[in-house]
Amino acid sequence: MITAEQKPMQEIINCIAPYDRILLVGCNECVTVCSAGGRKEVGLLASALQLHFLKQGKTLDIKEVTLERQCDPEYVEELVNYMDQVDAVVSMACGCGVQTIAARYREKAVYPAVNTKFMGASERQGIWAERCQGCGDCVLGLTGGICPIARCSKRLMNGPCGGSTKGKCEISPDVDCAWQLIWDRMKALGIEKRYEEVMEAKDWRTSRDGGPRKIVREDLAS
């Protein structure tokens, strides 16, 4: 999922201070799972903002809506009836959701209430860790299902480096050495011979280095 974290409260407050009527929009997808911008967080942030502005003597009119998916135009269309009743929109979705709203409702200011962080997986309740960087050319089949790009601090294609100590990365004792994990996994699978094969320099054009990316499925897009 795409993970996110709520922005500092003061930053959100500063964004909406000039407005009296706000539409606070959550998303039922990734940000719900990582507890950053689902229905519950929308309710919580709306309450907090109302309490803040009540103390300032201002009654903030906040409408709360949580869309099924904020990155799809057909769901964002559901906001159309709210737009003449609000001065600005605050989105609790990832950057994709914020931009989908901004593209559809050009006359309204849209502010993000979360910082989009990374593509990650849940390690346990309340903890999410980065697992994919969307490099566009997946190597997981070569590395025992552990990504050296997302999980090695140096993104080494042939590791580990000299900073690997007792299975941990030199940047922090809390960070596993991805290449140690890869080696352990390869051994468990009985494919450690594959470790000897040197991986060639990666073609980063499939990643962000090739500029903004787009997928076109002719069979669906027509």
């Binding site: 109302q50 309490l51 009540l54 103390k55 300032q56 003597g57 201002k58 009654t59 009119d61």
Partner: peptide
């Protein structure tokens, strides 16, 4: 509570 003392509480 600041919510009580502030103006406009009726709207909540």
């Amino acid at each position: 509570s600041p919510a009580k003392t502030a103006a406009g509480q009726a709207a909540v």
